[in-house]
């Protein structure tokens, strides 16, 4: 019984619940508000924020789980977004690997850079399974909009990702 409560109270269970909320925002409000015709990517932002806050391995796990959930609502093959976001989370975690105590602006720069990379990983992964046609000049516009929106939203999402993934001692 105690073990079950420990699992329910773990940060990974919390992560899945928070990801459901983030995903619901992604498929509703952020799919509807499209600055310059581009959808903001809050699932990607959450993964990047987890990576820059907790490092490579946590970033990769969060990316793989978030990507898997995102895949279930997309029409692309399941697992593709998981791999792309897992790689994105791991890339974001490299910040902690090189700078164990990054400043706030370093985190923001990392969020911007990795968001751009994340938007490149996905069409690359698509083209690897034969769904080509997305690597075109429009990608630059997508990257520009996603980077700007992610920089604006990053402070709030960084707080949420830290709250979600923080270890809590003695949950029972």
């Amino acid at each position: 019984m105690n073990r079950l409560i420990l699992i329910i109270a773990s940060r990974w269970s919390r992560l899945v619940l928070v990801l459901f909320l983030v995903l619901s925002l992604q498929t509703t409000v952020f799919a509807d508000l499209r600055p310059f015709g581009i959808a903001a990517q809050v699932v990607l932002l959450f993964v990047v924020c987890a990576g820059v806050s907790f490092g490579v391995s946590v970033g990769a796990v969060v990316g793989l789980i978030a990507g898997l959930m995102y895949d279930f609502v997309l029409t692309t093959p399941i697992g593709l977004g998981s791999l792309a976001l897992g790689l994105t989370g791991a890339t974001a975690g490299l910040l902690i690997y090189f700078y164990p105590n990054p400043t706030w602006w370093m985190r923001l720069v990392a969020v911007a850079a990795v968001s751009a990379l994340g938007e490149i990983y996905f069409p690359l992964a698509q083209s690897m399974v034969g769904l080509d046609g997305w690597l075109q000049f429009r990608l630059l516009k997508v990257i520009a909009v996603v980077v700007v929106v992610n920089i604006v939203l990053a402070p709030g999402v960084l707080i949420i990702s830290r709250w979600t993934l923080s270890e809590r001692k003695n949950p029972i």
Partner: peptide, 24 residues
């Protein structure tokens, strides 16, 4: 903890690849 996490990452990545294959 790190070993467990590494195992989880490998497991999730392999699951993703299997799911891609099955979905295709």
């Amino acid at each position: 903890v790190l070993s467990n996490r590494r195992r989880t990452i490998i497991l999730l990545a392999l699951t993703s690849i299997i799911l891609i294959t099955l979905d295709l």
